[in-house]
């Protein structure tokens, strides 16, 4: 079993140019990160390209990982998720607005495959999301997992953009407040 400390160690060695560590990291994390690409992009070919580009970024930025204060899996998933979101948005702006295919991808239920690296305080977000209105929690998920923008959320919920921004910010503050109470 690969532990958080193992991953941290591999990233540290990658920062010094250790290619074997990079391969170890790839073997330990690529399936999870590919799952993230597939979830965001909903398209296998694009997800493969995104994963390839994300790992290039991960190698190149390994030396800067230390300073950001994130846990190693958070950093890896964030790099991958952000890169996939950039791709989704580039695709949408190329195709023109109004596409809503990604919405058809159903949220999967928590499964036994949840990463062993997940810690209890992270799992707490599930409780806290459950305390939001279903619409608000849905909007947070759409933004995080599908890369939706305020404009797309406004279109989806059929409310003005400023309104959606106001209520989403309020929901995010509520979520943040809930997270700071120890679960």
């Amino acid at each position: 079993m690969t532990t958080t400390a193992d991953i941290e160690d591999m990233i540290a060695r990658m920062a010094m140019g250790d290619r074997a560590a990079f391969e170890g990291l790839y073997n330990a994390t690529s399936a999870k990160l590919f799952g993230v690409c597939l979830r965001v992009l909903g398209n296998r070919a694009e997800a493969e390209d995104a994963l390839q580009e994300a790992f290039v970024k991960i190698w190149r930025n390994a030396d800067r990982y230390r300073v950001n204060g994130l846990s190693p899996m958070t950093w890896l998933i964030t790099v991958t998720r952000n890169h996939s979101v950039d791709r989704v948005r580039a695709r949408k702006s190329k195709q023109g607005a109004g596409l809503d295919e990604a919405a058809e991808i159903a949220d999967s239920k928590p499964g036994p495959e949840a990463l062993a690296m997940a810690s209890s305080d992270r799992v707490r977000i599930v409780d806290c999301m459950g305390q939001l209105d279903p619409d608000k929690a849905g909007a947070v998920r759409r933004a995080y997992l599908e890369g939706e923008t305020y404009q797309e959320l406004a279109d989806h919920y059929d409310v003005p953009l400023n309104t959606v921004r106001t209520w989403l910010r309020r929901s995010l503050l509520k979520l943040r407040e809930c997270l700071s109470h120890d679960g």
Partner: peptide, 21 residues
């Protein structure tokens, strides 16, 4: 940022791993 990002990322916990090609 680290506090919130570390928790938000748990939204990906239910994404099943898929072995890349």
């Amino acid at each position: 940022y680290a506090f919130f990002a570390d928790r938000m990322v748990a939204l990906t916990d239910d994404i099943a791993p898929v072995t890349p090609p």
